[in-house]
Design a protein around this nucleic acid. Sequence first.
DNA 1: TAGATACTTAGATATTTTTCTAAATATTGC
DNA 2: GCAATATTTAGAAAAATATCTAAGTATCTA
Lengths: 94, 94
Amino acid sequence: MKQQEVFKAMADPTRRAILKRLQGGPLTAGEIGEAFDITPASLSHHFAVLKHADLVRTERRGQYIVYSLNSTVFEDLARMLMDLFPTKGKVGGK
Amino acid sequence: MKQQEVFKAMADPTRRAILKRLQGGPLTAGEIGEAFDITPASLSHHFAVLKHADLVRTERRGQYIVYSLNSTVFEDLARMLMDLFPTKGKVGGK
DNA sequence: TAGATACTTAGATATTTTTCTAAATATTGC
DNA sequence: GCAATATTTAGAAAAATATCTAAGTATCTA
């Protein structure tokens, strides 16, 4: 996991909103864009950042490009966070 | 939890390193600073960001200021992340 | 193949963030 | 109170990021 890329990607509210929209399942770039008051070009930039962080996957379907969440990286990130703060309870993890 | 502030705080590698240093227990600003090749003023800015996100707590002890982690917010953040990606298993979540 | 639709890339500008230097505040010990 | 130490605040410069317009690529339909 490229930690820096992931955190940077998550730092922008628009990108978090994009991820949120994808919770319901895969969507095309256009469908995602409907919810935002931003040009397709800017959206595309955000997609690129999310993709670079490996937070989303893409698949071309005809003239559309379908985006979907990559849950694996979220899990890694959550794990990393759990790791970052000291354990208060009794259980194992250093 | 101020989600935006927390993510923004986590997005900088220096700030993540500061948090990491604090895993071992509270430290003064100066002690933290030893590990970084950066001016005290810049460090202080990073502290302010971390504090604003409520990721660290401070306490003045004489002429020193002691920083410590606020684990609560980390837990909130981890929870939030778990929440952000769709449940794969059968259990409950939305 | 031409025209329409969906999306990305390039390049410019505006905003935000990081960092620095210099100066200010707080506390200690004489 | 004064000098020394620890840290923060203010203000400026440099670097990174978000956004836009215009132009490019890919695919579909006729």
